[in-house]
C-alpha cells in the first residue's frame, strides 16, 4: 500500500528523513514512534505530498507520489484519511457539516450525503451530536467527528498524527478501539504516537525513527521510556 524506497528529505542542514526504505502492506496497522524531531511528521507529509522528497521513490496505492504532478494531489489525498492531534474541525460548521464537507469536495449529491453522514456518525457513536458545533463537544467526541470525516469517503489509508495526544487515557482507549475496527474493515492505518501504553497494549507493527533513520521495524512493544526526550507531553490536558 505504502512503499518508501531510499527516500531522503532534508530541510537545509536539518535531516528530516535519510535514505529510508519501508513497505506497509494493505490492511496493516502501523505505529510510527520515535523521539521528538526524529522525522515522523516528515514521513507523513511525504505520503501526503505536502512536501517533496529530495530523492527516492514513494508509492501510495496506485500513485507514485514522488512522480505525480501537483494537479493530481487532490485526487491522491482523497484516497487518504487524515486525523490530527488537534482535530482540525471547522468551528463554524456543525458536526454534520464538518463531515459532509469531505463529501462535497468529492462532488457527491445531497442525497448521498444525507444518507451516508448519519451512518458514519453512528458508527462513531456520535449520531446524536450531528447538529452541535465542535466547541460544544468533548475532546474525545471531537476526535470522533474528525475520524468520521477521515473515513467518510472510504479511504484506503488512514493516517493519524498523534490522534490521542490531547485525550485522557480512557477516551484514548475508545478512539483506539474505533481505529482498530476501521482497520478490521481493510483500511491500512499509520499512526504516529508517543503513547507507550497504547502501543504496548495493541501489539501491532512498530516502526521507530531516530534522526531521520528507520532504526527498528517489528511487532509488539513501544520500546522507549514514556515521557523521555519528547517535546509534546504524552497526555496533555486540553
Amino acid at each position: 500500500m505504502i512503499t518508501f524506497t531510499n527516500v531522503t528529505k532534508k530541510y537545509g542542514e536539518n535531516i528530516g528523513l535519510e535514505n529510508a526504505s519501508v513497505s506497509i502492506a494493505k490492511g496493516d496497522f502501523v505505529f510510527l514512534v520515535g523521539p521528538s524531531g526524529a522525522g515522523k511528521s516528515t514521513f507523513i507529509k511525504l505520503i501526503l505530498k505536502e512536501i517533496n522528497a529530495d530523492s527516492g521513490r514513494i508509492k501510495v496505492g496506485d500513485y507514485v507520489v514522488t512522480d505525480i504532478s501537483n494537479r493530481l494531489i487532490p485526487q491522491h489525498r482523497r484516497k487518504i484519511g487524515m486525523v490530527f492531534q488537534d482535530f482540525r474541525l471547522l468551528p463554524k460548521k456543525t458536526v454534520f457539516e464538518n463531515v459532509a464537507f469531505a463529501m462535497e469536495i468529492m462532488h457527491k449529491s445531497r442525497r448521498q450525503i444525507r444518507k451516508r453522514v448519519p451512518q458514519v456518525l453512528s458508527l462513531m457513536g456520535i449520531e446524536d451530536k450531528a447538529k452541535r458545533y465542535p466547541q460544544e463537544l468533548s475532546a474525545g467526541e471531537q476526535q470522533r467527528v474528525a475520524i468520521a470525516r477521515a473515513i467518510i469517503n472510504n479511504p484506503k489509508v488512514l493516517i493519524a498524527d498523534e490522534p490521542t495526544g490531547n485525550l485522557d487515557p480512557e477516551t484514548a482507549k475508545g478512539i483506539m478501539d474505533l481505529l482498530d475496527e476501521i482497520n478490521q474493515t481493510g483500511t491500512t492505518i499509520v499512526m504516529v504516537t508517543h503513547a507507550k501504553d497504547i502501543v504496548d497494549r495493541m501489539n501491532k507493527r512498530v516502526i521507530a525513527i531516530e534522526d531521520g533513520h528507520i532504526v527498528r521495524d517489528d511487532y509488539g512493544q513501544y520500546g522507549y521510556d514514556e515521557g523521555l526526550d519528547f517535546g509534546e507531553g504524552v497526555f496533555t490536558d486540553v
Binding site: P74, R77, R78, R88, A102, I105, R149
Partner: peptide, 16 residues
C-alpha cells in the same frame, strides 16, 4: 487559513 489547509488535507482541488 486554517479552513483552507483542512480543505486541502481532505483533498479539495484548488478551484474548490
Amino acid at each position: 487559513a486554517k479552513e483552507i489547509s483542512i480543505m486541502k488535507y481532505v483533498g479539495a482541488t484548488n478551484w474548490f
